[in-house]
Design a protein around this nucleic acid. Structure first.
Length: 818
DNA sequence: GTTCTAGAAC
DNA sequence: GTTCTAGAAC
């Protein structure tokens, strides 16, 4: 089936390419709607889905709030109950596996999982997951507490709002796991819930919240306290879990689990016990985790205090190479990605619902189906997926459905006309094989370089196994039960098997993209790939920016706006089945206008959409009218007249060296459009320009690295509050070795959230149509933050001390970046 | 954005 | 003595 849409460089065209190769893709057309395309059996289906509603993810993490989840039901509790039609679940194959892994959390989590400090090794119980070398180096770093500090007598039960958990009525004293005094529910299959996340990501808090909120028996096993309240061995955890599962209790295994091999241990256990293994990945930004670790005083493993900040940052840098993020392909029935505390809250609520119906005497399976129906769409043309009713997987369906509803709600906006998800439908391979349209080389690579693949599927009929339904952009990713693999040859199995092959290698993921402390949101699964590989040309289809719009306050004007030509109307509308060419027509009809309209942007007389905050206001806020602030504007207009070396010049941009470089290599790519005075003027229509700016920067970086061997990694980004008029992209090496870097503000404007990485700017523009400016309070906070090494996180007392540290810091040499 | 200055803090 | 901060001026 031949469909021609757009041009070769358009994401939609790329999607069609995928379709024609037997793949499926999910397009998100700005704010207006999402387009789901599939061809599981070579019969292309196109569905226009209403734009998901709801506010963007909260800014809790952006603000660096401490862990501590709100009680279940507080934060839109009712809303997550999957209002009919509100969640455009599209499911078709049961296990759309993400092909692409995240970046992200961007930045904070990248690189190899090298050494961990002694505190981490013992404290978080990953002793068996670390090399001796790593452990040793960590210990030598002195970042962690000594063995003596591990003597915290209390296990995971401590701090539970005053309640010391004891053995539950149902025999919760499983080894040394801590139960919640609730009996196992007859007939409710236990599940194993594996947590993964950095120290300080909130794993234990999650456990306590879940144990409190749930009506069924949950046993919390934490290696930090498995040995009579002290850190123990993995084997002890396994034994405790085995016992608890045998008793019918649901179990939580609370370890960092950044390493896939460590997770495998517990997946094997789940298989052995014939229970489903689910994962909750707490991908909270490392900066926030470090802050929590620094502040806490009651960690049983002693991973606490200011000295352990560095532990978090080190682990964050290392986790990619160890198998982060967790994927359903590993064997998890689902993976929930939590990027914010709100996400975690929702996940708690979702898991607290597990077994609720059964506990109340109802039918878990019926509840599952009911919930699934609520979030599912019609099933025209979709084949039912093998339901696993009666299994833990089926029982978990309401949980997953709630999560999917939450994800759909929290992520109303995805990348404008960008492909955000790929998966191979089960039938595609077979069909492709039958018709000779199998995937061609490059498809997987393309997908691997793209944004994080959200769970995507086509239709989730009421008769389907709810747990199998992937959400439109859900962060819950389904996979087969660890202990009950789907039948060979089934649709489910096919998808899963391919999924298992799909996760890109760490080096393929965009983890090396500019790191950032941007703790916003998270919408896209796993932090979303920040897009195409750094070297990818601007013409690459769907630049692949992760569908992870920043959770920025004040950007809710787009909420509820599914218009822009979408025939789907309001968010409550049901997905439009079929659609076919019409859908594509709508897709291509003014997607940009739709996005702009949704973002509330109004075209100016010059055709440039102005910020909601008027131009004059922006200028006043940014102080762009000062005479001294016009240097870059003049350079844009008259590059030759600039005193700075012109590195590049074309009709759209001028690149010059920064007059006061804050690193050995520090240049600016300046937009020449006079209408672009600052980032406040950016709109979705400027995405191509930004891609061009990126490419110009990348080209220069490549040359620079040849000229200056040993140059540190580069990052690209904008200052949240620019001082100089005219939009300019900073291109800066991470050595920060420069006499012009003199004070705290200089440092923090490049190493805190004041620095807005290009990737995140692109993402926000894709998702929201414009950028949300930080408040003056945030501006001051960022500028005034204490000095910390951007690589290891250690605090420094002064700029001279910081500079000395940077020179000696090994972590600087391993910094991710371009 | 910068430099310069003065005073405070270490 | 060194460093930081704030304000003024550019």
């Amino acid at each position: 089936m031949a469909l021609r849409v757009g041009n070769k460089s358009s994401p939609s065209c790329a999607a069609l390419t995928v379709l024609q190769q037997g793949e499926s893709a999910v397009l998100h057309n700005g704010d207006a709607f999402s387009l789901i395309c599939t061809r599981p059996d070579l019969a292309i289906q196109v569905h226009i889905l209403p734009a998901a509603q709801g506010p963007p993810a909260d800014a809790a993490t952006r603000e660096g709030t401490a862990a501590g989840y709100m009680p279940a039901g507080r934060e839109g509790g009712a809303a997550v109950a999957a209002p009919p039609g509100s969640a455009p679940s599209t499911s078709h194959n049961s296990s759309p596996e993400r092909v692409v892994a995240p970046t992200t959390q961007p930045s904070q989590q990248s690189s190899r999982h090298t050494e961990a400090s002694g505190s981490y090794v013992t404290g978080d119980g990953d002793l068996d997951g670390l090399s001796d070398e790593g452990a040793d180096s960590g210990r030598s770093g002195g970042a962690g507490p000594g063995p003596g500090s591990l003597a915290s007598p209390v296990s995971t039960g401590k701090g539970q709002r005053g309640k010391r958990r004891g053995p539950g009525a149902g025999g919760k004293d499983t080894a040394r796991g801590v139960g919640n005094n609730k009996p196992p529910v007859q007939g409710l299959p236990p599940v194993l819930l594996l947590f993964a996340g950095l120290p300080g990501s909130g794993k234990s808090t999650f456990s306590r919240s879940l144990q409190d909120a749930s009506t069924v028996s949950w046993v919390h096993v934490n290696q930090d306290a498995i040995n009579k309240g002290k850190p123990g061995k993995r084997e002890q955890c396994v034994a405790a879990l085995r016992a608890a599962l045998a008793e019918g209790s649901c179990c939580i295994i609370d370890r960092c689990h950044l390493d896939a091999s460590q997770r495998a241990t517990f997946l094997e256990l789940a298989a052995e016990c014939h229970v489903a293994a689910h994962c909750v990945a707490l991908a909270i930004p490392a900066q926030a985790c470090a802050g929590r670790v620094a502040a806490r005083t009651d960690h049983p493993g002693g991973v606490q205090g200011d000295n352990n900040r560095a532990v978090v940052f080190r682990m964050a840098k290392q986790q990619d190479s160890k198998g982060w993020p967790p994927t359903a392909a590993e064997g998890f029935t689902s993976v929930m990605d939590c990027f914010t505390d709100s996400d975690a809250n929702a996940a708690v609520r979702a898991w607290a619902a597990y077994g609720a119906a059964a506990a109340a005497g109802g039918s878990g399976a019926a509840a599952a189906l009911t919930t699934a129906t609520a979030v599912g769409g019609s099933s025209e043309g979709a084949k039912p997926v093998g339901a696993a009713q009666g299994t833990a997987e089926a029982q978990a369906a309401p949980t997953l459905a709630m999560w999917q509803a939450y994800v759909a709600k929290r992520k109303p906006l995805a990348a404008a006309t960008a492909i955000t998800a790929f998966f191979k439908p089960a039938a595609a391979k077979a069909a492709a094989g039958a018709t000779g349209t199998g995937a061609v080389p490059g498809v997987k690579a393309m997908a691997a370089g793209k944004a994080p693949a959200a769970s995507a599927a086509t239709e989730a009929g009421p008769q389907q196994a709810p747990a199998a339904g992937g959400s439109q952009v859900g962060a819950a990713r389904s996979a087969p039960m660890a202990g009950a693999k789907a039948e060979p040859g089934s649709a489910v199995t096919g998808a899963r098997q391919r999924g298992a092959e799909s996760p890109p290698a760490a080096e393929q993921r965009p983890a090396k993209r500019p790191a950032t402390a941007q703790p916003s949101v998270g919408v896209a699964p796993h932090g979303g790939g920040t897009g195409a590989p750094a070297g990818k040309g601007a013409g690459s289809p769907g630049s692949g920016h992760a569908a992870k719009p920043n959770a920025v306050p004040g950007s809710q004007q787009s909420q509820g706006n599914s218009g822009g030509g979408s025939a789907s109307g309001t968010g409550a509308a049901s997905p439009s089945p079929g659609g076919g060419a019409n859908a594509f027509a709508v897709l291509m009809k003014g997607s940009r206008q739709a996005a702009a309209a949704a973002a509330g942007a109004k075209p100016s007389p010059t055709g440039v959409a102005r910020a909601t905050l008027g131009g004059a206001d922006v200028d006043k806020r940014f102080k762009l009218d000062s005479p001294w602030a016009q240097a870059l504007r003049k350079a844009a207009q008259d590059p030759e007249g600039s005193q700075q070396q012109v590195l590049h010049k074309d009709e759209e941009v001028v690149m010059i060296m920064d007059a006061f470089p804050k690193a050995r290599s520090h240049a600016l790519v300046i937009a020449r459009d006079p209408a672009l005075r600052s980032i406040a003027d950016l709109r979705a229509e400027h995405l191509p320009l930004l891609e061009h700016m990126r490419q110009v920067a990348l080209d220069w970086i490549a040359k620079r690295k040849e000229q200056v061997p040993g140059t540190a990694a580069f990052k690209l980004g904008f200052h949240a509050v620019p001082s100089m008029c005219q939009l300019h992209l900073h291109v800066i090496s991470q050595d920060f070795d420069s006499p012009a870097l003199k004070n705290k503000k200089h440092w923090n404007t490049f190493t805190t959230e004041f620095f807005r990485p290009l990737d995140l700017v692109l993402r926000e523009l894709e998702g929201h149509g414009k950028l949300t400016l930080i408040s003056e309070a945030e501006e001051k906070r960022f500028e005034g933050q204490e000095l910390r090494c951007h690589a290891c996180g250690l605090a420094q007392k002064s700029i001279p001390a910081l500079k000395s540290h940077i020179v000696a810091c090994d972590a600087v040499k391993c910094l991710p970046g371009l």
